[in-house]
């Protein structure tokens, strides 16, 4: 675990030399982001430690099985370190983090880190694929609709766009997932309904995960584009009589992308939550399934580890977006200084 933090640490700090370290805002910016990351992580460690044992039910019994004798349970309790006082458990936990030791699963006895590592790629695959498709589709669509309806033109398109996106937006991802299964797997039999055997089994989960954010992001892109089109600097660029393609590509897009990326970061982070449900529907062997199983079997170390990893991923995504934004638009960074 500590290794991955150090890795993150070096990234933002190492980036500036390419642009030259003479601009001090970069340093400040990197340090702040780093501070944010460390703070989030400390919070996560604290919160997960305190909150997880509050889950009702005795993990020792859960691990030993319902028929185990009292002695067996006590033995397991000792084995799992559950007989120690709370601060002792906490020190063990934190100490373990520094050696990448997240403990062993109560139920399977496996190393938690390897349990998570086995599941992580599946969730990451799904989330990254979905968000890429979301951006590829919604940015052009949103900009196009904004352009076509700017200044009150084509009111029908305005209404159509609003209606379609609202409609899809009102369909929760698991409902979408279920409907997709009914239509494409059960009805048409085009794609498998569950599992992660081959590429075709990726289709439905990805679709289920991406449709809603596509609507959200294209609405945002459309709104932001409309705002940008009313800006003074677009008027200036119009005064230079540059073509529409260049106007949109060079003058509108960079300013739309900042908001879009900020939002996408949040959505990608939220996707990690959405993935839980989607994974349940499609029996996708990712972290989401893992945490639901772990909660049901009160497997503290796995719950903790997964929450920690998901939280860390969410934070890293948001920080990454911040860094990309700062590169695109240095003002965001200097505003802090």
């Amino acid at each position: 675990m500590s290794a991955s933090i150090v890795h993150q640490e070096s990234q933002p700090v190492a980036a500036p030399p390419t642009t030259g370290l003479r601009e001090r805002p970069w340093l400040r910016f990197s340090l702040r982001r780093l501070g944010g990351l460390v703070l989030s992580f400390v919070l996560l460690v604290g919160v997960t430690f305190v909150i997880v044992p509050l889950i009702p039910g005795d993990p020792a019994i859960a691990a030993a099985g319902q028929e185990a004798s009292g002695a067996q349970i006590e033995y397991i309790r000792e084995e799992l370190g559950l007989d120690q006082p709370l601060y002792g458990q906490f020190l063990d936990y934190v100490g373990g983090l520094f050696t990448l030791d997240l403990g062993t699963s109560f139920t399977s006895g496996e190393d938690v880190a390897s349990v998570i590592l086995a599941r992580l790629p599946f969730t990451a695959e799904l989330a990254v694929l979905a968000i890429s498709l979301v951006l590829i589709i919604s940015v052009p669509v949103g900009m196009l609709v904004a352009y076509l309806t700017h200044g009150g033109r084509r009111p029908w398109l305005d209404h159509l766009f609003n209606f379609v996106t609202s409609l899809v937006y009102s369909v929760p991802q698991y409902v979408m997932a279920t409907l997709l299964v009914v239509v494409f797997a059960v009805g048409l039999g085009l794609f498998p309904a569950a599992g992660a055997e081959n590429l075709s089994s990726l289709v439905l989960p990805t679709l289920a995960l991406m449709l809603l954010p596509t609507c959200v992001v294209s609405r945002v892109v459309r709104r932001e584009t409309a705002v940008v089109l009313d800006q003074d600097y677009i008027r200036t660029a119009r005064g230079w009589r540059i073509g529409q393609v260049r106007l949109f590509g060079r003058y509108v897009l960079p300013n739309v992308i900042t908001t879009t990326l900020t939002l996408s970061g949040l959505i990608l982070a939220a996707q990690l939550g959405g993935a839980i449900v989607i994974e349940t529907v499609f029996a996708w062997p990712g972290l989401g399934q893992g945490i639901v199983d772990a909660i049901l079997s009160r497997d503290y170390p796995v719950i903790r580890g997964t929450i920690l990893i998901l939280g860390l991923m969410a934070t890293v995504i948001i920080i990454l977006v911040d860094v990309i934004l700062a590169i695109i638009d240095p003002r965001t960074m200097e505003a802090e200084a």
Binding site: G36, L39, S40, L43, I51, V52, L54, I55, P56, L266, A269, A270, Q271, L272, G273, G274, I276, V277, I291, V292, I295, I303, I307, L310, G311, A314, T315, I318
Partner: peptide, 20 residues
């Protein structure tokens, strides 16, 4: 603190609370 909390997928958060 809020910023960190907002970044965290709220469904997972809710999941843990619901389990508790």
């Amino acid at each position: 603190f809020l910023e960190t909390a907002v970044a965290y997928p709220s469904l997972i958060f809710a999941l843990v609370i619901a389990a508790i």
